[in-house]
Amino acid sequence: MKLCRYIITCVFLLPGFVFELKGQEVEKANMAGKEVYMLKSKVSGSDTVPHVMLSEVKIVPRWRFRNKRERRVYSRLVRNIKVTLPYAKIAAAKLEEINAHLAQLESEKERKEYLRVAEKKLFQEFEQPLRKLSFSQGRLLIKLIDRETGDTSYNLIKEYKGSFSAFFWQSVARLFGSNLKAEYDAEREDRMIEHIIIMIENGML
Results as ranks from 00 to 15, higher is better:
R116L: 12
V52R: 00
F123Y: 12
R71G: 05
E106F: 13
V43N: 07
K109F: 07
R76C: 00
R72C: 02
E106M: 12
N67H: 12
D146I: 02
E127W: 11
S107Y: 07
P50Y: 12
L54S: 04
I90D: 04
K143G: 04
L140M: 08
N99M: 05
L95M: 13
S41C: 05
E70H: 04
A88N: 04
E56R: 12
L144E: 09
A93L: 15
K109W: 03
N99A: 07
A91D: 02
P61S: 07
L85V: 03
E97F: 08
Q104V: 08
P86D: 07
R69K: 13
V83G: 00
L105V: 03
F135D: 11
I98V: 15
S41P: 14
L102I: 08
S44K: 11
G138W: 01
L115Q: 06
L85M: 10
S46N: 14
R79F: 09
K121T: 14
Q137R: 09
E113W: 01
W63E: 04
S134E: 10
G45S: 08
L144K: 01
R116W: 09
V78Q: 00
N67K: 08
L133F: 03
V43Q: 06
V83E: 06
V78H: 00
L122M: 10
Y114A: 05
N80Y: 04
R66W: 01
